[in-house]
Simulated assay, not measured.
Amino acid sequence: MDDTQIAKRLEILRVEHRDLDSAIAALLDTGSTDQLQIARLKKRKLRLRDEIALLEDQMIPDIIA
């Protein structure tokens, strides 16, 4: 993947991460008792965060000092 593709993928992942955050907050605000669904959303959010961090690391050039 080149930097342009990585940047596009990062933007998509960040939007999805924000959407999941909103969905989790909405479920918690409504007093949802579906803990399994909330746990799945949180797990997905963590996977997205890990993928975002990995892609961000790829965009930073290796500097050999």
Rank of each mutant, 00 (worst) to 15 (best):
T4W: 01
E16V: 02
E51I: 01
D2V: 03
S22D: 12
M59F: 00
I38A: 03
I63D: 04
T33N: 14
D2A: 06
A7Q: 10
A23I: 10
R18K: 15
R9G: 06
T30I: 03
A25T: 10
R44Q: 05
L54Q: 11
I12H: 13
L46M: 09
Q5K: 15
A25C: 04
T30Q: 04
I24W: 10
D29M: 14
Q37A: 14
Q35F: 13
L48H: 07
D57T: 14
A39W: 00
D57A: 15
M1S: 07
L13K: 09
L55V: 06
R49F: 13
A39P: 00
D2F: 05
Q37L: 15
I38E: 06
I38C: 02
M1C: 01
R40M: 11
A65Q: 06
L46V: 10
D3P: 00
I64A: 12
A39K: 06
L46A: 12
L20K: 11
R9L: 14
D2R: 04
Q35P: 02
S32C: 12
K45F: 12
R9I: 10
R14V: 03
L41E: 02
A65M: 09
I38G: 06
D19P: 01
I24G: 12
M59W: 00
L54D: 05
R44F: 00
R9Q: 10
I63S: 01
A53N: 06
H17Q: 05
A65C: 03
